[in-house]
Write a protein that binds this DNA or RNA. Structure first.
Lengths: 157, 157
DNA sequence: GCTTGACCTCAAGCCGACTTGAGATTGCAG
DNA sequence: CTGCAATCTCAAGTCGGCTTGAGGTCAAGC
């Protein structure tokens, strides 16, 4: 094996894309099923990914860090060119959306930390004094867990 | 109904606790099953929660915002007194752990935002230039999704 | 040409944090 | 005392993001 599983057109077999992206082949098949990446097939029905798939996968991972679901990542990807690097304008639109999410989440965390700091030493955890127990103020009161940056409509109130 | 479903000892029926905590009764039963809160039973087998349950539930919600799983929240709760407000020392230990997590996550997000800012206008998304595509640098490369603050061992490297 | 590892499809399983539904019981207001 | 909302238990379902397994095919190095 010379250039691993990369053919002369530079197209990647799934194992190669897996190795380069750090994802399992099963995950890549899943991403493809979700429409995040696309492949052509060999005569023998094996996937061959264009090199842009590498970029798209990286994009998806970054999106996940920002807190996007795969569905949201797909929506964002759909607005970027499939087979070439995005232009500045295209990229800016996406990047700005991400920045807003990041900023929002950072702000949320900072407020929580502040409340926490106020608590340290107060020995409180009494329902009336402690900001932590101020319901409706606790970010994400709509539902817990994985919804950190998911851009659920920030509570109007 | 005067004081809703709160009996004279101040103990709360599940519906009352649900209303006051903002959680569904099913969630509270689940929390109880997980050992996060505890109840006594009436002769008719209905749950009656001590008022401290309110505090414990609030604690759990806050923990979730910080990114803890219910299991981790339980571990933290187990180190706090079950039936009285925690003392300053007890609380400090927990709060400091949380703050570390929050700081770590904020740092992560800030680094991501910085990379993103560097990208805006560069129109890159080329694999070599763009920091976003620097694999192993993208926080959470170990696995995506809901693992934001989960305190998975931050990559040593 | 053969062997072996990479690949294929499809269905099912897993995790966390709950929700939903069925069917039975309880408990408070009138 | 009655009626009806609230509660009970237990099993199963949901969602996102994958992984695992079974059973079968493909392709490359010797």
């Amino acid at each position: 094996m010379l250039a691993a599983m990369t053919d002369r057109d530079g197209r990647l077999a799934i194992g190669e894309l897996a190795a380069r992206s750090g994802l399992a082949p099963s995950a890549l098949r899943y991403y493809e099923e979700m429409g995040l990446i696309h492949s052509e097939r060999t005569t023998g029905n094996q996937r061959r990914y264009p090199r842009t798939a590498l970029r798209r996968v990286a994009f998806v991972r970054a999106a996940q860090v920002v807190g996007l679901s795969l569905e949201e990542a797909r929506a964002a990807l759909d607005r970027l060119p499939v087979d070439r690097a995005p232009g500045a304008a295209e990229w800016n639109a996406v990047a700005r959306t991400w920045q807003r999410r990041i900023d929002a989440r950072i702000g949320e965390l900072e407020r929580l930390r502040e409340r926490l700091t106020g608590c340290i030493g107060c020995g409180c955890l009494s329902l009336r004094k402690c900001g932590l127990y101020n319901p409706g103020d606790v970010a994400g009161s709509q539902g817990p867990g994985a919804r950190y940056l998911e851009g659920d409509p920030l509570p109007e109130a």
